[in-house]
């Protein structure tokens, strides 16, 4: 009863089979995914970008600096949410992940698939934000010449969110995940320079230091450099370097955590 035995070469096959499973599930739960991704940025863009501007509380330039920030935030939060909570549940309660841990591929690749999948959802979320932005704001800042920088920052941000999710999902004990997520989530949301440009914080130096510790800051600033370079921003090479470094650190910790959860 061993006619078809998986060979070591089929690790790539197993990797893509697992990825296909995740995409299949996302597809079959598409309305939930869309609502999860679109709702929050839709309201933020409407209230802060449109409403406050129409009421005269903000200047029109605010909408154009808010959009790249919201884009960065949405990408990172979507990627993070794709991994963090589901991973805690799969490892802690439902054990659903076991069938994939027992598939013939290295555990590191199972973790890598999680990251790729989460990042993919992040990028899809970004793609959805563009029509949402046009719809709510009327127009969005866009520069074709900055497309490479835009895509570079976007992909790094998506992977960064996935790394963050992997770290939270594997290091936080199941019974504490709700508390930790809410403790991590809110500060991340508001210290990532998504709603204000980092250089403008010079007047509030202590807060500028805090925001410098949030990797979302560099994604927001990177996308602002690409889309609205007239707004003062952190130089792109600094943003990119810090994003890469943060990503490497999170992935190293996350994969270590994944191994610890997967093997006793």
């Amino acid at each position: 009863m061993n006619t078809t035995v998986a060979t070591p070469q089929s690790e790539t096959g197993a990797f893509f089979a697992i990825l296909r499973r995740d995409l299949y599930v996302t597809w079959s739960e598409l309305p939930i995914f869309l609502a999860q991704v679109i709702l929050q940025p839709l309201f933020v863009l409407f209230v802060f970008g449109k409403l406050l501007g129409s009421l005269g509380y903000t200047r029109s330039v605010y909408a154009s600096l808010l959009f790249p920030g919201m884009l960065a935030l949405t990408v990172i939060i979507t990627s993070m949410q794709t991994l963090a909570f589901p991973l805690v549940v799969e490892f802690g309660w439902t054990k659903e992940i076991e069938d994939r841990l027992l598939a013939p591929l290295r555990l590191g690749l199972v973790a890598a698939e999680k990251i790729v999948f989460a990042a993919l959802r992040g990028v899809i979320a970004a793609a959805l934000m563009i029509p949402v932005g046009i719809l709510v704001l009327g127009s969005i800042p866009w520069r074709w010449s900055a497309l490479p920088l835009f895509l570079g920052v976007l992909i790094l941000a998506a992977l960064l969110g996935a790394g963050l999710g992997l770290v939270l999902g594997t290091l936080v004990p199941p019974n504490q995940i709700n508390a930790v997520l809410s403790l991590v989530f809110t500060p991340l949301l508001f210290t990532g320079c998504s709603q204000y440009p980092w250089p403008s914080l010079a007047r509030l130096h202590w807060f500028q230091i805090i925001t410098a510790g949030n990797p979302i800051t560099y994604a927001s600033e990177g996308l602002r450099a690409a889309l609205v370079p007239s707004v003062p921003h952190i130089r792109p090479w600094i943003s990119l370097t810090i994003l890469v470094a943060a990503l490497a650190l999170l992935i190293a910790i996350g994969i270590g955590g994944f191994y610890r959860r997967a093997v006793d």
């Binding site: 078809t4 998986a6 060979t7 089929s10 096959g13 197993a14 089979a17 697992i18 296909r20 499973r21 299949y24 069938d99 994939r100 598939a103 013939p104 591929l105």
Partner: peptide, 9 residues
């Protein structure tokens, strides 16, 4: 999907 993970055609 289990079969797919295990490389069954």
């Amino acid at each position: 999907f289990h079969a797919a993970y295990h490389g069954i055609p």
